[in-house]
Amino acid sequence: MTQLANYFASIGRTTIEKVVAIGQASLMLFGALFAFPKVKNIGLTIHQIYVVGVQSLLIIMVSGLFIGMVMALQGYTILVNYGAEGSLGPMVALSLLRELGPVVTALLFAGRAGSALTAEIGLMKATEQLSSLEMMAVDPLRRVIAPRFWAGVISMPMLAIIFSAIGILGGHLVGVDWLGVDSGSYWSIMQSTVEWDKDVVNGIIKSIVFALVVVWIALYKGYSCVPTSEGISQATTQTVVYSSLLILGLDFILTALMFGIS
């Protein structure tokens, strides 16, 4: 009997803990949102765009190029059976703009920048840098969290756009320059199929949602981690795992909302 009671008590306790964690994370998010960088802190945000955006650029560009090239190769071998290789352009462009651009960029971003953010914030906490900021009357949410938050939210959609654009060029490289699809039809059929507001803008919206999620998780995990080596490594792993799962789950929901019901 007492075992049963203990069981329910532990369920209750974990639930309460989870709710508290969500509450804390939301408070932190609002702290960061409303601490929109002051003029003085714009420089910090730019520096963080350099750290999370510019330093992720190479991996994003290389991945985009290869994914575009692979898609052209795969698509060509299938489409050529039906004599429809002219549709290679829209196939590459639509998959990149609607799905692969936002999703793969977000996954790479979570692994490359999200984990780094968690580790950095966690280590700042472990070495009492956050505490000492507070004691110097500088709000860490304003000084440390907000610039990173905004930098991430600004950078990721830009990275996703670059990813898609480079992927489309990579598809051109393989499809047109190598496999001999007509260049004119690659672009023109793409143009008549891809729509700015439906495909491009929706992809960007997805990317912004993913950016919010990844950066939020990364910063919260770092900010709330147990300030030890194990705590930080655990928080870093959790950032990557939780963000990846949430990205994929949200992608399904967003896709259903945007393209599922016509």
């Binding site: 703009l97 489309i168 700015w196």
Partner: peptide
């Protein structure tokens, strides 16, 4: 590129 060359 997306606006001019890819999307109609």
């Amino acid at each position: 590129l997306l606006a001019l060359k890819v999307a109609n």
